[in-house]
Lab assay of single mutants.
Amino acid sequence: TRRLSELRVIDLRAELKKRNLDTGGNKSVLMERLKKAVKEEGQD
């Protein structure tokens, strides 16, 4: 898996959309949101 920081905004939005998460905001907001989601998934 590529590091989140290497993803483009369009990629971040696609990942968030797959998880039914909000896709609004700038790159840093999107990255934080996705990071949190990935962390929570890992705790399942």
Rank of each mutant, 00 (worst) to 15 (best):
L30F: 00
R33K: 05
L16E: 06
A14D: 05
E6L: 03
K17Y: 00
D22P: 14
K39Y: 07
K17L: 10
E40T: 08
A37Y: 10
E6Q: 12
K36Q: 12
E32V: 02
N20G: 14
A14M: 15
D22L: 03
V29T: 08
A37T: 05
M31V: 10
S28R: 15
E40W: 06
T1L: 13
D44V: 08
D22H: 06
K35R: 10
V38W: 14
T23D: 04
A14L: 08
D22Y: 01
V38P: 05
N20F: 06
L7A: 11
E32D: 14
R8P: 14
E41V: 07
K18F: 02
T23R: 01
E41L: 04
G25E: 05
R33A: 04
K18D: 03
E40L: 09
R19K: 06
G25V: 01
V9P: 10
R33P: 09
I10F: 04
N26I: 09
V38E: 12
V29C: 08
M31R: 08
K36G: 12
E6H: 03
E6T: 13
L21P: 10
L7H: 04
T23A: 11
S5T: 09
L4R: 08
L4D: 13
K35F: 07
V29K: 08
S28A: 13
S5G: 10
K17F: 02
V29A: 13
K36P: 05
K18P: 04
E6P: 04
G25W: 00
T1Q: 13
L21M: 09
T23V: 10
L12V: 00
I10G: 15
L34E: 14
R2C: 08
E32G: 09
S28E: 13
L16D: 09
R33N: 02
E40D: 13
V9I: 05
Q43T: 09
M31P: 01
G25L: 00
I10D: 15
K18V: 10
M31Q: 06
L7R: 07
L7M: 15
N26G: 14
A37I: 03
A14V: 09
K39L: 10
A37W: 02
R19S: 04
I10M: 15
V29P: 02
G25K: 01
G42E: 15
V29S: 04
L16R: 01
E15W: 00
V38D: 09
L34W: 02
K17N: 06
E41P: 06
R3G: 12
N20K: 10
V38L: 14
R19Q: 07
R8E: 14
K36M: 08
Q43F: 02
V9C: 03
D44F: 05
L7K: 07
M31L: 13
V38A: 09
R13P: 00
N20L: 06
R2N: 14
T23M: 02
M31G: 02
G24E: 12
L30N: 00
K27F: 05
K17R: 12
M31C: 04
N20E: 12
S5Q: 07
V9R: 05
D44K: 07
K39V: 12
G25Y: 00
T1I: 12
I10T: 15
D22S: 10
A37N: 10
L30V: 06
K27T: 06
R2L: 11
K18R: 13
G24C: 13
K27R: 13
R3P: 12
R19F: 01
L4F: 08
I10N: 13
R2A: 11
